[in-house]
C-alpha cells in the first residue's frame, strides 16, 4: 500500500466504522424497543435514568443556551443595521433558538455529557463481565440497561430542550433590554411576528430523536466495548463523535422533511 493511498484508505475506514456504529446502534435501539414489554426489568430504572439523563443535564443545557441567547441578540442587532427595524432581534433570537440552536446545541452538549457517561458506564460493565453476570442471573441486559436509558432520553431530551429554549429567549430578551436599544415591547413584538406553534413541535420531535440517538449510540458503544480501560476510553470518545455526527445529520434531515 503506497503512502499516497493511505489517507484515502483512512477515509474509507472511518466511513465504514461510522456506518457500522450507526447500524449497531440501530439494532440495539430496535432491541430496546422490543424489550419494552419487559416492564419489570426496565420499570424500576426509568426514573433514576430520567434523573441522570434529564435532570442532571439541565444546568449545563441552561448554561449553554443562556449564553447562546445573549450572543444571538448581540449579533442580531449588529447585523440588522440600517433599514431593518430593531425589533427583528426578537424574531431572530426566538426563531433561531426554537428551530435550531435550542435542540442542536443541547443535543450536542448532552451527547458529550450523557452519551459519554452511558458509554463509559456500560463499557465498564462489559469489560468487567458485569453484563455477562446479568445474563447469568437471567436478566436481559438490553431490557435492564438499554431500554430505560433510551426511554429516559426520549422523554427527557425534549424537556431539557424546551427549558433551554425558554432560557435562551429570556437571555436574549434581557440582553436586548440591558445592552441594546430595544424595549421589551419591541422584542416581544419581533418574537411574535414569525412565531408558529408548529415550531415548538418541530423542536420537540427533533429533540426526541436526538435523545434516542445519544442514548442508543452510547449504549451500543458500551455494549461493544473490547479490552480494558483503554477500550472503555475509546468507546466513550467514539460514542460522542458518532452521536454528534448523527445529530447533525438528523438535524438536516428533519429540516428537509418537516420544514419544506
Amino acid at each position: 500500500m503506497s503512502s499516497f493511498l493511505a489517507p484515502i484508505r483512512m477515509v474509507g475506514r472511518g466511513a465504514l466504522q461510522a456506518l457500522t456504529a450507526v447500524g449497531r446502534a440501530g439494532y440495539l435501539g430496535t432491541d430496546a424497543v422490543r424489550a419494552l414489554r419487559k416492564v419489570d426489568l426496565w420499570g424500576p430504572h426509568l426514573v433514576p435514568q430520567m434523573s441522570r439523563i434529564g435532570v442532571e443535564s439541565v444546568p449545563i443545557a441552561l448554561f449553554i443556551s443562556m449564553f447562546t441567547g445573549v450572543v444571538l441578540a448581540l449579533q442580531a442587532s449588529y447585523t440588522l443595521t440600517g433599514q431593518v427595524p430593531l425589533y427583528f432581534v426578537g424574531a431572530l433570537v426566538g426563531k433561531t433558538m426554537i428551530l435550531e440552536l435550542g435542540p442542536v446545541l443541547t443535543g450536542l452538549a448532552l451527547s458529550g455529557r450523557v452519551g459519554a457517561n452511558i458509554a463509559a458506564e456500560i463499557g465498564t460493565m462489559r469489560v468487567t463481565e458485569q453484563i455477562d453476570a446479568l445474563e447469568t442471573l437471567a436478566y436481559d441486559p438490553v431490557a435492564y440497561l438499554v431500554t430505560p436509558r433510551v426511554l429516559a432520553g426520549a422523554i427527557m431530551f425534549p424537556m431539557v430542550v424546551i427549558l433551554s429554549i425558554a432560557i435562551g429567549i429570556a437571555a436574549g430578551w434581557g440582553t436586548s433590554m440591558a445592552l441594546l436599544d430595544i424595549t421589551s415591547t419591541e422584542f416581544i413584538k419581533g418574537l411574535r411576528l414569525f412565531f408558529d406553534p408548529w415550531d415548538i413541535q418541530f423542536a420537540a420531535i427533533k429533540s426526541i430523536t436526538f435523545g434516542v440517538t445519544v442514548t442508543a449510540v452510547g449504549c451500543s458503544f458500551g455494549f461493544h466495548t473490547r479490552g480494558g480501560a483503554e477500550g472503555v476510553g475509546q468507546a466513550t470518545t467514539r460514542a460522542v463523535v458518532i452521536s454528534s455526527m448523527i445529530i447533525l445529520v438528523l438535524d438536516a434531515f428533519w429540516a428537509a422533511v418537516l420544514l419544506s
Binding site: 426514573v47 430520567m50 434523573s51 434529564g54 435532570v55 439541565v58 422523554i155 427527557m156 425534549p158 424537556m159 431539557v160 424546551i162 427549558l163 429554549i165 425558554a166
Partner: peptide, 11 residues
C-alpha cells in the same frame, strides 16, 4: 424529575 417535566411542559 417530575418538577423538570412539569416545568418544561408548562413552558
Amino acid at each position: 424529575v417530575g418538577f423538570v417535566i412539569i416545568a418544561a411542559v408548562t413552558a
